[in-house]
């Protein structure tokens, strides 16, 4: 696939294709929902509605390296991440959830969503190990596919983002 009309900041020929040419929002939503239905619970549907994230968020992300290189990022409120961890572990949850448990669970969900996103993109590609934190790596605002959903009424976003390119560095990331 060649990026012919990929925006004013693109130089022809020496750039990988824009992420929107490789995967669409419906596929990212489908992948995320399958992860939730299988791992979180069979009635844990995701409602595709945007809502503002709370001030205190937690993100997890995995890198993909290959014909397309970038990052898959999950972001949700910190309280939602705790609830998500309990739902994921169900009867296997320890009595007291430590921060490490929440980081690990959110990281594993990024791994599952990221692995399946990678399989839809052109390959061969390598998947990195998940990382977790309050501030995910900045992506290129012009080259990010973002899906907003509600889980149990709480906002959650999934972004498939190309890295921030040099000429964009002075711009304010989304």
């Amino acid at each position: 696939m060649t990026a012919i009309d990929a925006g004013p900041r693109r130089r022809a020929g020496d750039r990988p294709p824009a992420v929107a040419e490789l995967i669409d929002e419906a596929t990212v939503t489908e992948i995320t929902e399958q992860a939730w239905l299988a791992l979180v619970g069979e009635d844990e549907v995701l409602v595709p509605l945007p809502a503002p994230l709370p001030a205190d968020t937690l993100s997890s992300w995995v890198g993909i390296t290959g014909p397309w290189t970038g990052t898959v990022v999950l972001t949700t409120g910190r309280d939602t991440a705790v609830e998500l961890t309990r739902a994921l572990l169900r009867e296997h949850a320890p009595e007291v959830l430590e921060d490490e448990d929440v980081d690990d669970a959110l990281g594993e969900l990024a791994n599952v969503v990221g692995g399946n996103v990678k399989a839809v993109l052109p390959g061969p590609s390598a998947l990195g190990l998940p990382e977790v934190g309050a501030t995910p790596p900045a992506g290129s605002p012009a080259d990010t596919l973002r899906v907003d959903v509600l889980w149990r009424g709480q906002p959650l976003t999934v972004s498939v983002q190309s890295p921030l390119h040099t000429e964009e560095e002075n711009e304010v990331p989304l």
Binding site: A38, L39, V112, K118, A119, P124, L127
Partner: peptide, 27 residues
């Protein structure tokens, strides 16, 4: 039991000697 889910990755794992392959997410 992995989120690696390309056709080629499954082939590689079987060729290396894995017997079965479950793709994450699973039930």
């Amino acid at each position: 039991v992995t989120s690696e889910s390309e056709h080629g990755q499954i082939v590689r794992a079987l060729a290396a000697g894995a017997h079965e392959y479950v793709i994450k997410p699973f039930t």
